[in-house]
Design a binder for these strands. Structure first.
Lengths: 195, 195
DNA sequence: TTGACAAAACTAATGTCGTTAGTATATAAC
DNA sequence: GTTATATACTAACGACATTAGTTTTGTCAA
């Protein structure tokens, strides 16, 4: 039995690739992952303590990567331009890493609350959003409301899009652009910017 | 072996109750449902052709009920008032029937496209939205964009709320009100209505 | 170089799930 | 009352997660 050279990080990374290809729901199984890694199922227990642990680790990885994407998008961009960049980055992340994103959403229901690691990672995704909102003069409770709104907009559109929930043959990029425009304009109380 | 008096409708209804209590993900199993109904697992196959069939039936029931709720909300309400009523009805449905709603979302990815029954039920949920948008002068492609936006807003907020994704202790009703306000105001290109 | 030890792989087994096949019985129709 | 069908059952299979116990590999110190 030659060693496969696995470790926790490698297992999680392989799982992340797998969920992006096949989905993070019931499609993810230790059996499938073990097969992918050329190893027997129980061997995975040397690196993760079960499928729950693996899913939590995927959620953590997803939140961290999403946070990085959002931070990058907000670099050097303030005001409404920053909000558009954040929304677009959010949607892009869901498109590029669909399984990993799905894992982060599952996390809220299944692991949180009171998981300090996930809470911290979630906080990191909020930070760039609050920074951009601050540049628009929104602070404290007002900023929380606006952040929730922006996240709802991006999450709602991206998940419905990913799930194929938009039936009609109408351009989805344009739908998203209009949605974010409407939200941003409504937020600042100005007439449509038309960006 | 006295009969339990089951039929397809009773099985689906019991499943709907179950998913509202325990979730529509992996929590739903034929084993659990059979136990709930006081019957052995294989007996359920007399009424549904498997767990896939049951999930599809749940999605259908959820879409129909959501459609009814939206239609009721739009009765006698046009313009921005109608949009607020639709958004609130959507969110209320998710709160009252969380499992049934979850089943409808799963449906897009797993059963659709090309399931005529689900497609029709989905169309029924779109109808009242398009009617209200029509009262605002939005037609055709423009209405589709707006409908997608409203749905993204309602779906995004409601699912994040349900999943416990809003950590901070800030009023969620107020967050939703502001989000819908911003979207509606941004949609019509007017200054904030403050409703 | 060798011996010991921990890490990482394995086999075997248990229990849950969905599903199918085949069997018995209760209800309804005649 | 006989018959037919619907509805329930038992038994069994394969896929899954998980645990326990075993073997091997790689490393590090003597």
């Amino acid at each position: 039995m030659p060693r496969a050279g696995l470790n926790r990080a490698a297992v999680v990374e392989a799982a992340a690739t797998l969920v992006d290809e096949e989905g993070a729901g019931e499609e993810l199984s230790l059996a499938r992952l073990a097969e992918h890694l050329g190893v027997r199922k129980p061997s995975l227990y040397n690196h993760v303590s079960g499928i729950g642990d693996l899913r939590r680790e995927l959620a953590l990885a997803g939140l961290r990567e999403l946070g990085r994407s959002l931070s990058r998008a907000a670099l050097g961009r303030g005001g409404e331009e920053g909000l558009f960049a954040l929304a677009e980055a959010y949607r892009s992340f869901v498109k590029e890493r669909p399984g990993l994103y799905e894992a982060t959403v599952r996390s809220y229901r299944l692991y949180a609350p009171n998981d300090p690691g996930l809470g911290a990672a979630e906080g990191e995704t909020l930070e760039p959003v609050l920074a951009v909102l601050d540049s628009l003069g929104l602070r404290e409770e007002e900023a929380i409301h606006a952040a929730r709104g922006l996240r709802s907009v991006a999450h709602g559109f991206a998940t419905l899009e990913k799930a194929g929930g938009f039936g009609m043959d109408v351009d989805q990029d344009e739908s998203f652009r209009r949605l974010v425009c409407a939200f941003v304009d409504g937020l600042s109380g100005r007439p449509p910017s038309g960006i």
